[in-house]
Design a protein around this nucleic acid. Structure first.
Lengths: 115, 115
DNA sequence: ATAACAGTTGAACAACTATTCAACTGTTGG
DNA sequence: CCAACAGTTGAATAGTTGTTCAACTGTTAT
């Protein structure tokens, strides 16, 4: 007699049950896209900077010792994820956190890795 | 007189202040690495499956219509991030969530994108 | 011992992504 | 209007990453 994992553990039934509980495929995809935004140290650094204070692109660039172009590109990604917002004052553009949600998410991660 | 952003907004002082508040560079890097793990829809799907029930590699593969090899590769990443743990039973290896931390982090993200 | 099964692993390839560079927009002061 | 500054953008490049494939380990039943 065949002792497959399938037959031993009754896969087909369990698999069907679990499948019903899963969120929509598009939601799972969107969630991964969202977390991708946190998956880059430059963006993480920018977010941490904005935790402390709103700041213009040049200021962030100076702080992180990077070009304004590089920072601007990443700010665009952060804005796309609705994590930051911008405010223009003359030639300068100030960026700040869109909401406090971000803080919680990042603190959650920090907790996990420092265990 | 030069009306630089620098001089107008007193960058150097603010920048220095904020720099002191930032976590270690290595911590910020590790945090980004951690979030990278959530930044893939296959891994997100696997985590959601394990929310419902512990499951073997073949079961997950069947559920997600993917090869065992692909799943095994991703489980390795998840294990590396200490998000899942394994348990052997004969030829079968069962995976499950390492702790409930993961649930909170993922729910946090879901909240943000469904706003 | 050996065959069959469950899972792992490393190399290779394709797809994606972060930074750089140069050219651009928009704003302000002269 | 023009020059200078702050920031943005698109193309190009280098580095990273997910899946596939084939070969491998480890376990169990005969």
């Amino acid at each position: 007699m065949a002792e497959d994992c399938m037959k031993l553990h009754n896969h087909d039934r369990v698999v069907d049950e679990v499948r019903d509980q899963l969120p929509e495929d598009t939601d799972l995809f969107d969630l991964a896209e969202f977390y991708k935004v946190f998956g880059d140290s430059t963006r993480i650094k920018i977010l941490y900077v904005l935790f402390e204070s709103e700041m213009c692109v040049g200021g962030i660039a100076q702080l992180l010792s990077m070009t304004m172009s590089a920072i601007s590109h990443q700010l665009r990604v952060l804005k796309g994820a609705r994590l930051v917002k911008q405010r223009r004052e003359g030639k300068t553009v100030f960026y700040s956190l869109a909401d406090d949600h971000v803080r919680t998410i990042i603190e959650m991660g920090m907790e996990h890795i420092s265990e």
